[in-house]
Design a protein around this nucleic acid. Structure first.
Length: 302
DNA sequence: GGGCAGGTGTAAT
DNA sequence: ATTACACCTGCC
């Protein structure tokens, strides 16, 4: 039996990997009927499973793989936002204990418990979320898969690493079209060029304040309010970022404003005031809850 | 088959 | 600061 990852206690693997943060995971079934997730982290193919005992690293059994996985899953040493540490236990339960101080979150947590904020490569997050605009998860996933297959470094037989900035920047438009990018193709290439030629340095961005980094991100074509905040949160780990998409907007309006419409600005201001350093984590739970329970065809909007 | 999907850019108010 | 519209593509 593959080794357990005790730090991931409280982490719900499927909820985390299917939460719309990452697009490089597939679920499958082993010969003995166990569900297994296969995905790419950096240049390695990971296989993960989860059972009553906990989360297991099935493969690779290589030096550094466990540490890389811990970090990726957000259950490494620095998982908590400053000032929110409530004591012992894994990162996920501690954050949820802090979130539950908010009665609304405390109530929906029953349905969303176990979602972890992943720590991903900012470059991959940047391109993935440019692709995500006005798009749906299955198609985003397919686009990234095709792009990686066409332009990414091969990893074993069938998998490919995410393309480098240089490869994407010099990609032919036919390749990008084949990647199903549609009208986003010019955005992706322009963003790749800005990174490839050093105009935008994502490592430097990671050392800036959140507002400074946001301002720089907004200069990238295809990066607006929502995508920018996704990059801040999922790639640069600015935990006060609060990406507002239609689901989060719907969730906040429904759960905190009796279904009354709010503008984007109002929702951003609300999130800052209400959730503070936990805003990013709160967003994950509101998003997941809204997706599962606030479908428009089931909700009468006030 | 017209409308829509986990937004953004642009133009107009 | 908000609103209206087009936009690739796959799917209902």
């Amino acid at each position: 039996m593959p080794a357990l990852l005790p730090e991931a206690s409280g982490l719900h693997l499927r909820r985390t990997l299917d939460s719309g943060q990452a697009f490089r995971w597939r679920w499958g079934t082993t010969a003995d009927g166990r569900e297994i997730a296969t995905g790419i982290i950096g240049r390695r193919i990971f296989q993960l499973s989860q059972d009553a005992q906990g989360l297991r690293l099935v493969s690779p059994d290589a030096p550094g793989a466990r540490e890389a996985l811990r970090r990726y899953l957000g259950v490494g040493s620095s998982g908590m936002p400053p000032g929110s540490d409530t004591g012992r236990g894994g990162a996920v339960p501690r954050i949820e204990a802090a979130l539950a101080a908010d009665p609304v979150l405390g109530r929906i947590l029953r349905h969303t418990r176990g979602i972890s904020l992943l720590v991903q490569d900012p470059w991959e997050v940047l391109i993935s979320f440019i692709i995500s605009q006005n798009n749906n998860i299955p198609k985003i996933t397919r686009s990234i898969e095709r792009l990686s297959r066409a332009l990414g470094e091969p990893l074993g037989e069938t998998a490919h690493a995410f393309p480098t900035p240089a490869r994407l920047a010099s990609a032919r438009s036919r390749t990008l079209r084949a990647g199903l990018l549609g009208y986003r193709a010019p955005y992706v290439r322009a963003a790749a060029r800005l990174v490839a030629d050093g105009t935008i340095d994502l490592a430097v961005l990671g050392r800036m304040s959140e507002d400074e980094a946001r301002e720089v991100l907004h200069r990238i074509p295809g990066v607006g309010e929502k995508v920018g905040d996704c990059i801040l949160l999922f790639g640069l780990r600015h935990l006060t970022a609060f990406p507002v998409d239609v689901w989060v907007q719907r969730g906040v309006e429904r759960l905190y404003f009796r279904g009354r419409a709010r503008t984007l600005r109002q929702i951003q201001a609300f999130a800052r005031a209400r959730f503070g350093p936990l805003a990013g984590h709160a967003q994950q739970h509101l998003f997941a809850y809204a997706r599962a329970h606030l479908r428009p065809d089931r909700v009468r909007r006030a």
